[in-house]
Each structure stands twice: as structure tokens, then as C-alpha cells.
Design a binder for these strands. Structure first.
Length: 692
RNA sequence: GCCGGGAUGGCGGAACUGGUAGACGCGCCAGACUCAAAAUCUGGUGGGGGCAACCUCGUGAGAGUUCGAGUCUCUCUCCCGGCACCA
């Protein structure tokens, strides 16, 4: 709202009725949303941190300041009542009623308010712009010391947070400090470090909770907590304020002045007010013959949509043209999917049976908005009796995005991007990329940054092209192998080729094996050293892949481990019956471990390996602990923390034996010779460090 | 500006609880096979030194803690995500 009472949004004049006015009271659930973050153990810690911060619970004090020539006090909210004696000015949001009222007989202030309106309203825009303000021409009286301080309208005060008005303490707040210096206002120190050290608040604001109050009359010499409590009590006793808990979280404006979206099913009647569309008339369907021109929603210019009759009195009425924020629908689709054929209800028992979602996967960019709205909406549905659970998503995996290299040419300031598939790179003897040229004309192109795939950068890759060439298994294997799922995935056609090569190698290995006579049943008690080692590798791999897939979700390291096993199996030249039995065991394991990632190839190879069953019906393999057991362990020997040798000791070797072995190592002796051994550190199963 | 994340060979990444930095793959180099090429196979591949055994430097920059730091602490740089009407 500007100084003349007109409605504005993102710097553009809008109809007053276009100002969003449908809200969901998410703040009513702030406390529960905050507390329950502690229970979301299947969520990444960074998402939980971001949500806590977004909700932003704070304890503070609301205080009334009397305003000159006004009956209305100015109520402010502060989390630092201990600094109340340092207030040297006040600031209100440009759209604050006090600023608007003062602008009526102050055209210059009106102009300033209108300028503030144009700078945008996003938090990022407000925080980064130059802090500007203008005196509204009145003073406020500090109730604690009776001082009159000027009131400013300021562009950095948010109307939507707190009371839209702040007390300014330049000595102990960075933003107030910057503003006070720019406007030549007093900076008065009222708290000092608790440890008695000195600070210069004229230079820089001093902000800390570990303080003692000074220059604060009867409230001097107090800690933060004592000052908070005593000043809070003082204010409450006089009825000019109260201690309150506030949240940074704002209510959710679900109105959008857009065509695309679910219409808000409300009819505006001059007599009856806002009347819900009767259930029998739902859903309200968007008109499809729409001219998308000019500003705002085209619905507001369509009488055939707008004009209707009031369901209550039957008189002339108009439809609501606001549509719902898409976040509204994304807040409950996961439940609706379980009962999508039900036209009689929003959700039924089937939805309640399936939720909460065991494993939810989505981009990290949804950490606060979508994932907080969905949690809120789930609680609404719970309180409406639709579901029994408190939270929508038990486990959350936030995946990274797909990025790819960009190539371009610049001509007369105009940049043209070329698809990676149409470009050939050149490199030096070490493989470092030195340049790139377009395949069609052979002339050079610039190598740009690696960026999120987009049409404008022409760096998108259609997975279908790769699926056509290599098959879906290869493309899946590549995507799972290239990065862990929570990091970005850098697309590379050449690396897809690598995944294809691996599958071909495995295919050949299996076929070479099954062409021989089928192996006997494995007798694990009678193995040679080589055979035991290979068998250990098989079972170590089963154990590692089970952990990577089941606990860590690091599919890239799981696949790397399977590749290592395949390399080890391929190196084996043991053609004895026992050797072939181990090969069978190893290949069975490889195919079972890969089945979730390359289902088609695994299905075929499982049959080739002589099994009658279908692999999708098979159980996940279990590692044999006895096969993993070792008689000896390899230890690293360091001298002063630097690697100097390796020793092999019996797994039952005591500390004394290990120390002796370590010191006998010839390379270790070279570094120990002639020096006094000050300490011997033995880390069981890992290393020995000799400190000289 | 605030909140969250990240930086490791030519490249993607590994190192999970402070204990062998560079697993696995790509790329590159050399060799085998071939008339030749492709495909495939074998070997090599962080920088520097050394015939070699090995030595030395090295995980964005700088400091610190520790017997030992990619990993912990502090300061800083750059990049990415979010900041409520992009969805």
C-alpha cells in the first residue's frame, strides 16, 4: 500500500482486491513444526537446520512507546530488552500506518514511501539495498528513561515481521549502526562484555549475549537474562507491553493472481459477502479460451467466468479470480496418489494406510518451502481426521541437479550456445582440455562453465538418445555411478560409454564361465590361499554393497565395489572344480547386487548362470562372516606420522609382538636409527606410529 | 545481507569414527592383435628427484590443536542452493 492508499505488488500498481487475501494460518502450527524437527531422524541434518532457522523462534519483549501528537502508542518488538537504554531512534516500515498517516501533510515523506515501495519486497532485496530512511516529523518517548527520540520511516524494516516497527540501538545492532552513521545519529553504549574487556561501539556495533548492562539506571550491572527478566517485569507491571514468543515464519498467502492454478472456489456477493461454491458445483473449472495479454490474471477480464449468481441469495455475484499457489497441491499429492480414483472424498482409508511416505526424494531447493508446507498440510489433514500420522515423510533424500558443460561463440556481443553433442574437444598430452571446435564447421568454440541444464544454454541431454544407443540399464548404471545422489551430477557422454563397457565385460565373463562344465557344490573348508582370498573379496563386497545401498545411499561406491569384484574375478585363472565353484558364487553375487540398478541385464545373466528362478523374486545376498575372517592383518608403520613401511602380523598378535615387528622393518630402522624412541602408538587393526 | 552446502589428479569422484590421500570410472600415453582402422586385451598415469630401493612436496588460502589433519578449531577467498509471488 502506498502513501495514497493504492495497492502495489512487485513495483506494479494493482487493484486493491488483487492484493493477496487468502491465507493459511501456518503460524498456528509453528511450535509443533519446530518441535517435531527433532524427531525427523530420517532427514538430512542441513534441511532440519534450515527449517529451524526458517521458523525462527525468538523470545522477546513488546513495548509501547508513546508518540507525539498521537493517541496510539507505537508498539515495537525486541529480542534485546537489555539494550532499551541505548535507543537513539525508532524506525517503522514504509507501509506502517504511522508513516502513511504522517505522509498526509508531508509530501516529501509521501514521495519517499512511494520510492521504497518500488525496491521490491523480497527479503534478499531488502537486506542488500542501501539502508535509507526519512524522519516522519514526530518523536517517540522511551518509557524507561523518558527520552524523546526521532521516528524514521525506513526501507529496511519489514512490515510483515514483528509489529512493523523497531527500536534502534546503533551501539548493539549492525544495521542500526550503519543507519545511525549515515544519518549522524547518536551511538550510545549500554552493554559491555561480561569479561570486563573494552569495546569501541563508535567504530563497530558490539553484539553479544555474554554481557553486563551499563548506563541503564537501576537496570545497570545485570546479565542478559537478568536484564531481560527485570525489564520485562517492569514493563508488564505498568501495562505497556509483555514478554512474547515470536516466529520468523509468516502466514502462508495462498492467493495467486495467475491463470494457471486451481481456482479458489469462492463467490463474492454484495449482500452475503464471500460465499463458498456449493459442493455440487465443484470443481470450478478454468476457461480454456483465454487471451494471455497484459498484466495480471486474464480471468479478471472475462465476464463469462466472472459473472455468476450467489448460491445463498440468488442475486448477481462475481467469482473469485485468484488461483491457489501450486504449493497447496504439492502439499498433499503424495496422499492423494493412494486413492486417486475416489471422486467422493479428498482422501480415504487407503491414503491413511500408505502415509507417511517411507522414502521421499526431491531437490535440495525444496528444503524450506515445499517441505515445510507439506509438513504443515499433513498436520491440517490429521486434525481434520483424514490421516492418523503427524508427519508426511519418514525418510528424505535431497538429490542434486544434473549439470553439463556449455560451449558458445560470441559475435558482436551476441552469444550463441552449442550442444555438447555437436562439439569436439581438443586436449594436450595429459588429457587436459585445451579447446573445442564445432563438428559441423571444424572451427573453434569457447568452453564455458559447467551449468544446470537449460534450454538457454543449449546444454541439455535427452536421456532417450543414450537409451536408444546403449539401453536403459547402461544409462541407469552411469547415473548411479557418477556421483552420490545428494550431489550434482555432471553429465558426460564419454563416461556413459564406460558404463556400457563394464556391462559388456560382465556379460562376456558370465558367458565364458557357463560354457565350461557346471561347477560342483563349493566346499568352503578346503580352499587354497588364493581361493580363500577371492572368496573373501566376494563376501566383503556383499557386505559393503549392502551397507552402501541400505544405509548410506551411496550407490556410486556400491557400484565401484562391484566393479572391483568383477576385476578380481576376471583376473582369476583357477580352472579347478573348486575354482569354478568360487567363480559361480562370485558371479551370482555380482548379478544379485546389480539387479536393482541394471534389472534387465541381471535378469538375463541370472538365467544364464543356471538358475531356474526369476531374479526379481530372489532375496538380497547375505555375506558369510566366516569367509571374511582373516588369520593375519596388514598394519601400516609410521615414523613421526609419516608412512615408512608395512608389516603383516597374526590377528591374535599382542601389542609387544606388533611393536617388535614394526621396529624390525628395515625402512623403519633407517628413520629410527640413532634417535631416542619417545612414544609408540599402536592403533589396533590399523597402524603403528613410532615417535622419535 | 541472512540461512544451508561445497572446493581433493587432466575430468567425475573415493577416503564412513582423526590413522596408508587419490578406490572405481573417464580421459590420456605406450604395447598386443590388425594390411589399416574400430572394437578388444595388457601395462602406465598427482608434481619434483632417483638406475632402483626409495625420498620429497601435495586435498581452495593462511594460522592452530594432535604422535598423526582432506577430516577438528579459528580467519579468509571463491562457487552453488534458498530467502516466502519461479515452481
Amino acid at each position: 500500500v502506498d502513501s495514497e492508499g493504492r495497492g502495489w505488488r512487485s513495483g506494479a500498481l494493482v487493484e486493491r482486491r488483487e492484493i493477496p487475501h487468502w491465507f493459511l494460518k501456518i503460524t498456528d502450527y509453528a511450535e509443533e513444526l519446530l518441535e517435531e524437527i527433532d524427531n525427523l531422524e530420517g532427514w538430512p541434518e542441513e534441511v532440519r537446520k534450515m527449517q529451524r532457522d526458517w521458523i525462527g523462534r525468538s523470545e522477546g519483549l513488546e513495548v509501547d512507546f508513546q508518540v507525539e501528537r498521537s493517541n496510539e502508542p507505537l508498539r515495537i518488538y525486541t529480542t534485546r530488552p537489555d539494550t532499551l537504554f541505548g535507543v537513539t531512534f525508532m524506525a517503522v516500515a514504509a507501509a506502517h500506518p504511522l508513516a502513511l498517516e504522517s505522509a498526509k501533510d508531508n509530501p516529501e515523506l509521501g514521495k519517499f514511501i512511494d520510492e521504497c515501495r518500488r525496491t521490491g519486497t523480497s527479503e534478499a532485496a531488502l537486506e542488500t539495498m542501501e539502508k535509507r530512511g526519512m524522519r516522519i516529523g514526530r518523536n517517540a518517548i522511551n518509557p524507561l528513561n523518558g527520552e524523546a527520540v526521532p521516528i524514521f520511516a525506513a526501507n529496511y524494516v519489514l512490515m510483515s515481521y514483528g509489529t512493523g516497527a523497531i527500536m534502534a540501538v546503533p551501539a548493539h545492532d549492525f544495521r542500526d549502526h550503519e543507519f545511525a552513521r549515515d544519518n549522524g545519529l547518536e551511538i550510545r553504549q549500554v552493554v559491555s562484555p561480561a569479561d570486563g574487556s573494552e569495546v569501541n561501539v563508535q567504530e563497530e556495533a558490539y553484539v553479544s549475549y555474554d554481557i553486563v548492562t551499563v548506563n541503564s539506571d537501576q537496570f545497570s550491572g545485570l546479565s542478559f537474562k537478568d536484564a531481560f527478566d527485570q525489564i520485562g517485569e517492569w514493563v508488564e507491571k505498568r501495562g505497556i507491553g509483555e514478554r512474547v514468543v515470536r516466529y520468523r515464519l509468516r502466514d502462508w498467502g495462498i492467493s495467486r493472481q495467475r491463470y494457471w492454478g486451481c481456482p479458489v472456489p469462492i463467490i463474492h456477493c454484495d449482500k452475503c459477502g464471500e460465499v463458498p461454491v456449493p459442493e455440487s458445483d465443484l470443481p470450478v473449472v478454468l476457461p480454456e479460451d483465454v487471451a494471455h495479454v497484459g498484466h495480471g490474471s486474464p480471468l479478471t477480464r472475462m465476464p463469462e467466468f466472472l459473472d455468476t449468481t450467489c448460491p445463498r441469495c440468488g442475486g448477481k455475484a462475481q467469482r473469485e479470480t485468484d488461483t491457489l499457489d501450486t504449493f497447496v497441491e504439492s502439499s498433499w499429492y503424495y496422499a492423494r496418489f493412494a486413492c486417486r480414483d475416489n471422486d467422493g472424498a479428498m482422501l480415504d482409508e487407503r491414503a491413511n494406510y500408505w502415509v507417511p511416505v517411507d522414502q521421499y526424494v526431491g531437490g535440495i531447493e525444496h528444503a524450506v518451502l515445499h517441505l515445510l508446507y507439506a509438513r504443515f498440510f499433513h498436520k491440517l489433514m490429521r486434525d481434520a481426521g483424514l490421516v492418523d500420522s503427524d508427519e508426511p515423510f519418514t525418510n528424505l533424500l535431497t538429490q542434486g541437479m544434473v549439470v553439463a558443460e556449455t560451449y558458445y561463440r560470441e559475435k558482436n556481443g551476441k552469444v550463441t550456445y552449442y550442444a555438447p553433442a555437436d562439439v569436439e574437444t581438443t586436449h594436450d598430452a595429459k588429457g587436459k582440455v585445451t579447446g573445442a571446435k564445432l563438428k559441423t564447421d571444424g572451427k573453434p568454440v569457447e568452453v564455458g562453465r559447467v551449468e544446470k541444464m537449460s534450454k538457454s544454454k543449449n546444454n541439455g541431454v535427452d536421456p532417450q538418445t543414450m537409451i536408444d544407443r546403449y539401453g536403459a540399464d547402461t544409462v541407469r548404471l552411469y547415473m548411479m555411478f557418477t556421483s552420490p545422489p545428494d550431489q550434482k551430477l555432471e553429465w558426460s557422454d564419454a563416461a556413459v560409454e564406460g558404463a556400457f563397457r563394464f556391462l559388456k565385460r560382465l556379460w562376456k565373463l558370465v558367458h565364458a564361465h557357463v560354457q565350461q562344465k557346471s561347477p560342483p557344490k563349493l566346499n568352503a573348508d578346503k580352499l587354497g590361499d588364493e581361493q580363500r582370498n577371492l572368496r573373501r573379496k566376494i563376501h566383503e563386497t556383499i557386505a559393503k554393497v549392502s551397507d552402501d545401498v541400505g544405509r548410506r545411499y551411496t550407490f556410486n561406491t556400491a557400484i565401484a565395489a562391484v566393479m572391483e569384484l568383477v576385476n578380481a574375478l576376471a583376473r582369476s585363472e583357477d580352472k579347478t572344480p573348486t575354482g569354478r565353484a568360487i567363480m559361480q558364487e562370485g558371479l551370482d553375487a555380482v548379478v544379485l547386487l546389480l539387479a536393482p540398478i541394471v534389472p534387465h541385464a541381471s535378469h538375463m545373466l541370472w538365467r544364464e548362470l543356471g538358475h531356474k528362478s526369476v531374479i526379481i523374486d530372489e532375496a538380497w545376498p547375505v555375506a558369510d562372516d566366516a569367509a571374511i575372517e582373516r588369520d593375519t592383518i596388514d598394519l601400516v608403520v609410521q615414523v613421526n606420522g609419516k608412512l615408512r613401511g608395512h608389516i603383516q602380523v597374526s590377528k591374535s598378535a599382542d601389542r609387544r609382538t606388533i611393536e617388535t615387528e614394526a621396529l624390525e622393518n628395515s625402512n623403519v630402522q633407517r628413520f629410527v636409527e640413532g634417535k631416542a624412541i619417545r612414544k609408540l602408538i599402536v592403533v589396533p587393526g590399523k597402524l603403528v606410529n613410532v615417535v622419535v
